[in-house]
Simulated scan of single mutants.
Amino acid sequence: MPLHVTVVDDHSAVRLGMKYIIRDWMPEAAVSFAENMPELLRLLSSKFIHIIVLDINIPGGNHFDMIKMIRDIQANVRILVLSAYEELLYALRYIDLGADGYLQKDSREDEIKEALNTVFRGKKYLSDDVKEHLLQRRLNHGILSGDNPLQRLTNRELEVCQLLVQGKGVTEISKALFIHTSTVGTYKGKIYEKLNVINIRELMDKFNFHHIGAGQK
């Protein structure tokens, strides 16, 4: 069976660029596309896929349950996250949740091929920057003075924070995350406290400054 790689991204230029890189990396590979999470789940239900190159910021996605949703359908598929989100904030979270690798969209072509090779062999891929970050944290007993303040948030708090910054109200957030409105209020209070902000404008400024890597989407 030829290698089947699915690129999941809602931008056609990214999908076509990844197809070029994948075919250059492994010419015999079959490449398919999905533009959103429901489309990916339908594809997983109908075809065997070896590797998914996944942008986590897609319609119907952009939450930490995405990895579980994928593995509930195909448990052994390799998942390489390719995102504009800051890797020092997100990489280890997604690895812990079951992704096989994390790479930022501004990575060089040879880095992307190295990541594909690594996850294809069944190993975990992290960039040199993330590895250095982990090493420095270990040497400093788990503390880095220059840490991104968003790292203080739990996964759920980070999800709530994202929605708050998007302008969602408490009721909208409770429906989106299937939690009670009072729970959303509790998370909101913890977010404000951990990030040392007092209103949504301060939250938006701090979040936008630390959240996106490389000035991308």
Score class of each variant (00 low, 15 high):
Gly101Tyr: 14
Thr171Pro: 01
Leu134Trp: 14
Leu153Ser: 06
Ser127Gly: 13
His141Ser: 14
Ser182Trp: 02
Asp106Cys: 11
Leu144Pro: 15
Arg137Tyr: 11
Glu109Trp: 02
Leu177Met: 13
Gly167Cys: 09
Tyr192Gly: 00
Thr183Met: 10
Asn140His: 13
Glu109Thr: 13
Glu157Trp: 01
Thr118Gly: 07
Arg108Pro: 02
Asn196Met: 10
Leu89Glu: 11
His141Thr: 07
Tyr125Lys: 08
Lys188Phe: 01
Thr154Trp: 00
Gln166Pro: 04
Tyr102Gly: 10
Lys113Asn: 03
Gln166Ile: 04
Ile179Leu: 09
Leu88Gly: 15
Asn140Gln: 14
Arg137Gln: 14
Asp128Thr: 13
Val119Phe: 04
Glu132Leu: 15
Asn196Cys: 07
Thr181Gln: 14
Arg156Ala: 12
Arg152Val: 03
Ser182Ala: 06
Lys105Leu: 06
Gln166Tyr: 10
Glu111Gln: 14
Gln104Glu: 11
Gln136Gly: 14
Asp106Phe: 08
Ala115Ser: 11
Gln162Pro: 01
Asn196His: 08
Leu88Asn: 14
Pro149Leu: 12
Arg152His: 13
Lys175Gly: 02
Val160Gly: 09
Asp147Tyr: 15
Gly98Asp: 02
Ile191Leu: 02
Ile179Tyr: 04
Asp129Lys: 15
Leu163Arg: 07
Gln136Ile: 09
Leu92Ala: 13
Arg138Glu: 15
Val170His: 08
Glu132Asp: 15
Lys206Ser: 12
Tyr94His: 01
Glu172Arg: 09
Val197Ile: 03
Gln151Arg: 15
Thr154Met: 00
Leu92Phe: 05
Asp96Lys: 09
Asp106Ile: 07
Thr118Arg: 09
Gly142His: 08
Asp205Tyr: 05
Thr171Leu: 05
Gly167Trp: 04
Glu109Pro: 01
Ser182Val: 04
Gln136Arg: 08
Arg121Phe: 02
Lys190Leu: 01
Ser127Arg: 15
Thr186Trp: 03
Arg93Thr: 07
Tyr192Phe: 08
Arg156Asp: 13
Glu87Ala: 15
Lys168Ser: 12
Lys123Cys: 01
Leu116Cys: 02
Ala91Gln: 07
Ser127Trp: 12
Leu164Thr: 08
Leu116Trp: 05
Asp106His: 11
Tyr125Asp: 06
Lys124Pro: 01
Arg108Asn: 06
Leu92Pro: 03
Asn196Arg: 10
Glu114Trp: 05
Val197Met: 03
